[in-house]
Amino acid sequence: MPPSETPAAPSISGLAIVLFAGGFDRVHYALVMASAAAATNRPVTLFFTGRALRALLQPEEPGTLGWHALDPADDGSAPAERDRFFAANGVATFEELLEACVLMGVTVMACEMGLRALGLPAGVALRADVPVTGGGVVTFLNEAPKGASTLFV
């Protein structure tokens, strides 16, 4: 390349993550990926569907967040137990990652078809501290960052 030409700056593409699996470790790591991408100024969309939707449910009892009802972690431990292990070992907790995603403007979507497939009633209460957009696959595909890499978890 001639010295007078400078290379074009690489374009920063976004990240779109479809969270389908309901295992705690999978949903937790999707939040790791989303928060890391957002921290590097990439637009991010998280599309919760299937059993992963439980992570967005409003607590039924005080102190029992919806993600406590996710499927067990890969090591067989309950989600809350695994989260405590992470905290004790310097790994970001579920709530820390979710809060980081919210603070950094990650778009969080809940699949309306997925809610029905779980047998949840229309208008089921989702977490008030997480701005959630409802919609389906078409909405997700239209609103995900253009040119984004898409991961299916």
Rank of each mutant, 00 (worst) to 15 (best):
T45V: 09
A125R: 14
V27G: 05
A78C: 05
G114S: 07
V124Y: 01
E112F: 00
T133C: 02
G50R: 01
V138S: 08
G22V: 08
V108M: 02
V130K: 01
E143F: 06
G136S: 04
K146G: 05
E96T: 13
L97V: 10
V153D: 05
A144I: 01
I12D: 09
G147N: 10
A9D: 11
A9E: 15
L65Y: 11
H68T: 08
A55S: 08
F86N: 14
S149T: 10
W67L: 04
T6E: 15
D74V: 10
S77V: 13
F140K: 00
A55N: 02
D25V: 13
V44L: 00
A30Y: 03
A30C: 14
A73V: 13
S77H: 09
T150E: 03
L19A: 09
A16V: 00
P2E: 14
G23P: 00
L31I: 04
E143D: 06
L56N: 02
A128I: 05
P79G: 09
G66R: 07
W67C: 02
D83H: 12
L115Q: 15
V27D: 04
P59V: 08
V102M: 06
R42K: 14
L103I: 08
R54T: 11
L57K: 08
H68L: 03
A144Q: 08
W67G: 03
V130E: 00
D74T: 09
F85D: 12
R54C: 06
C101K: 03
D75E: 15
L103C: 05
P72L: 13
E5R: 12
V27L: 12
E112I: 00
A92Q: 10
V132L: 03
S13H: 15
G90V: 13
L103T: 12
L98D: 04
P7F: 14
G147K: 11
V138G: 01
F86M: 11
A128T: 12
N41M: 13
C101S: 06
A69M: 08
D75I: 15
A37L: 00
P79I: 13
A128N: 05
A8T: 11
L70Q: 07
P10V: 12
D75T: 15
G105Y: 09
F140Y: 11
P79T: 09
P43L: 12
L120E: 09
V18M: 14
A144S: 09
L70M: 06
T49L: 06
V27S: 08
G135T: 06
V137S: 03
L15C: 05
L65K: 10
F86E: 06
E81S: 12
A52H: 03
V130G: 02
E81W: 06
A39W: 02
N142D: 10
V102E: 03
R116E: 10
G135K: 04
I17H: 01
E112A: 04
F85N: 11
A34D: 01
G76L: 15
E5P: 01
P121A: 14
S149H: 10
P121H: 10
A37K: 00
L46P: 04
F85V: 10
Q58C: 03
